[in-house]
Nucleic acid binder design. Structure first.
Lengths: 336, 336
DNA sequence: AGAATGTTAGTTAGCGTTAACGTACATTAG
DNA sequence: CTAATGTACGTTAACGCTAACTAACATTCT
């Protein structure tokens, strides 16, 4: 008794069974060209009974299109990025495209590896979020791709469309510092992220605030990974090391929350002893006690717009486009 | 001046340039077969200068392997799932596989569409999380795939390996109810999810508790989507409709948090006026005030194990395997 | 020395599609 | 009535790669 091997049903099988050419079947499947009603229906019924499913690989080989878009994020676990991915996925699925997700765990080397592996033969377009790579490396990697959209990073040579905040990077933390100063704070700490200063260096950040009459010491500023754990650990050290601080800015909400937890454990009252401002406005920020003052970012829309810009590019539009979003301050209990 | 069209560099280009056959180049690229050191190095240098990158599509067509695994989740925005995806992605990337993510937004039709589109020619294996589809439909859809792992759902015919909680589904809510009863609560509400009763119907749930001497009225139990918003909205109605309740179980933490918010807005003190228990133990649960009593679920490990089981299957192992995880009660302030 | 074995390569034939062109027949226009 | 125009399909040749086989040559063994 011969083992029935599960065999792929090909276009040719359908064509033979239906008594037509493979091209006819192909045209029915793709709904292209002109086909008579009767032939179409007949072929469709044969397809159904045989259970034919087109081979994506073969199709990709000849058309050079894979119906997949790549998405690179540093941390899918961060609600900020998962919301963006959700937006991207919604648009992609609407257009019958799949999402190839690469989660780099905040590791530049893994990001580079991912960009190296992915290329035209894998995906039709690419959306890169908050790349940690230096611009020149990033550009060389993105050059392989015919359609690219970059989130939160401008591309000087217009090699990609961009989704950007209305302020330059780091600006929201600058605004947060001014907000705190206006509310009487003079000793303000800053637990910043690589990307939260972006094009602005932490030194520029300090200098700029100094010229506004807001003196911030360099040691009050510490680099952190954009995770709750990092915020918590650095927060603990920070609070112990600089008891004079009356306010702290977190690079994002996760970090701000970690700081807040550390502060509470150290016996500080929020906001009386220590005011805290975050960024991103993830769900968590509004639910804790006190709720966190933060900058709202329209993450879902960012994903949607990035995907739309990408599809524009994939459709051959070579015009450089930007989608600008605004971050708005949400005043809540942690820094009233 | 002729436009230089960006042209793909093929194996043949490399072979011609290096003065060898395409097979030799292929062997160098794939590191298979025996190649002399000198030839290998020569070919590699030609590959580097020409910037050759293998075509995934062509490779997939001939090998029938795509180096991609599909992952279907209902809501990537839910930390529960994003953690699982992170675990899967880590294992996959370790083995040079990419993750094709499908986010169904809790919509069964979209899930079915996704399972329909994906098949062997797209992915080498599939991990399905918490499918909302009826078993028979799910089975018929999974049959197309050579390697499948299902999370939080048993597959009667062993068509897929499984990652399962040590208790049958719904059991943790049952335990939560018993816990609350032991702490003196007699009027316990339950905002449940489709999957939180799983194989157990809500009627069975009530009957079982009744036989334990814990009478729960049917109207105290309401179905909810597994989101914060749903929990909040249903929580508001529930609290207004059944002021007699002294405790509520949420199907997961997001729902429990929504309920808690609604309760606080209605002037209830937690836990004095209303005790709340959630499930999953997402970060949020430990950070709110009061922190939420919940069942911890090792989500990252679930993802890792699911991926490992999947790779076992992809490597040809046809043994049915299960990975069983335990959910442990974390007592916190919302239900001490 | 001759046979057996090992090593390094080349040759051939697809994998399952679709683009581009070709052909037969029916319809309309002049 | 012939020529022009459609309509509905069929044919052929790739797309870029690798499995499977073959070939040449070097090495070892008896």
């Amino acid at each position: 008794m011969a083992m029935e091997r599960k065999q792929r049903v090909t276009l040719e099988d359908v064509a033979r069974e239906a008594g037509v050419s493979t091209m006819t079947v192909s045209r029915v499947v793709n709904n292209t060209g002109r086909i008579s009603q009767s032939t179409r229906q007949h072929v469709q019924s044969v397809i159904a009974t045989l259970g034919y499913r087109p081979s994506r690989a073969a199709r990709a080989l000849v058309t050079n299109k894979t119906s997949m878009v790549g998405v690179i994020v540093p941390d899918i676990t961060n609600p900020y990025f998962s919301k963006i991915v959700q937006g991207i996925e919604d648009v992609a699925s609407e257009r019958n495209h799949s999402v190839l997700l690469v989660n780099t765990n905040e590791t530049p080397s893994r990001e580079e590896a991912a960009l190296n592996q992915l290329d035209d033969s894998t995906i039709d377009g690419l959306i890169a979020c908050s790349s940690r790579l230096p611009t020149d490396i990033l550009i060389s990697l993105l050059e392989r791709h015919s359609a690219v959209v970059v989130i939160n990073r401008s591309m000087p040579n217009h090699i990609a469309s961009c989704v950007l905040p209305s302020h330059q990077f780091g600006y929201r933390s600058y605004l947060a510092a001014r907000y705190l100063a206006q509310h009487g704070h003079t000793k303000i700490g800053f637990i910043y992220l690589k990307r939260s200063v972006g094009v602005m260096s932490i030194e520029e950040f300090i200098a700029r605030l100094a010229s506004d009459g807001i003196p911030i010491k360099r040691e009050w500023c510490t680099l952190s990974l954009p995770t709750w754990e990092a915020g918590y650990n650095i927060g603990k050290q920070h609070i112990a090391a600089f008891p004079e601080l009356t306010a702290v800015i977190g690079g994002n909400d996760l970090v701000a929350l970690g700081i807040m937890r550390a502060a509470v454990e150290a016996g500080r009252r929020i906001p009386e002893d220590l005011a805290i401002i975050g960024g991103d406005d993830i769900l968590l920020a509004s639910q804790v006690t006190p709720p966190i003052t933060t900058y709202h970012v329209p993450t879902y829309d960012i994903g949607v717009m990035a995907a739309r810009l990408l599809f524009k590019r994939m459709e051959g539009d070579t015009v450089y486009r930007e989608y600008i979003y605004t971050e708005t301050l949400i005043e809540r209990g942690s820094a009233p």
